[in-house]
Computed example of a mutant assay.
Amino acid sequence: MAREVQVTFDCADPAAVAAFWAEVLGYRLMDPPKGFASWTEALDAMGIPPERHNDVSAVVDPEGAGPKVLFMRVPEGKQVKNRVHLDVRAAPGLRGEERMAALEAEAERLVSLGATRLRRYEPDGPLAMGHIVMADVEGNEFCLD
């Protein structure tokens, strides 16, 4: 039986990291529960104090095909390299210089949103088509692939 998957990020500022990833993935912020015009209204009704309103945020695929991505506030900062990361498919089907040019263009766009470019790997044979390693607004690594 197939299972749904949710990707969860630990972070310091869920709202900011969610906004960044919504732009990267073409997702949107998750709607508040039915009957509420905003998350603030829903959280107030649930008795969540204002200082806890940014404990969790989520983004969803507007077409419903991709996994929900959840961002949870944690007290500790990022310590080491991610053991798991997202590959953002920014150049599917492209090869060589055309692929790397598409990855470079996307890297520039993401840097303008607050990402950091870490390193570029050149195409090296049929299995290594080249990619760019980036970090999100809180330093979580991901690849433009």
Rank of each mutant, 00 (worst) to 15 (best):
M1F: 10
A2E: 14
E4S: 07
V5R: 11
F9Y: 14
D10S: 12
D10Q: 06
D10E: 15
C11M: 10
A12S: 15
A12F: 07
A12D: 10
P14A: 05
P14Y: 04
A15Y: 11
A18V: 13
A19R: 06
A19G: 09
F20S: 11
W21V: 14
W21N: 04
W21H: 09
L29D: 11
L29R: 15
L29M: 14
G35N: 04
F36K: 13
W39I: 06
W39M: 15
L43M: 15
L43T: 05
A45Y: 11
I48A: 15
N54H: 15
S57L: 03
V60H: 04
D61T: 04
G66P: 07
G66H: 09
P67H: 03
K68P: 05
V69P: 02
L70N: 15
F71E: 14
M72Q: 07
G77H: 13
R83T: 12
L86C: 13
V88P: 02
R89T: 12
R95C: 00
M100L: 14
L103V: 09
A105T: 12
A107R: 13
R109M: 13
L113A: 02
L113K: 08
G114I: 08
A115T: 06
R119N: 05
R119E: 10
E122L: 10
E122T: 14
D124I: 01
D124T: 02
P126R: 05
M129E: 06
M129A: 06
G130W: 00
I132R: 01
M134H: 00
L144S: 04
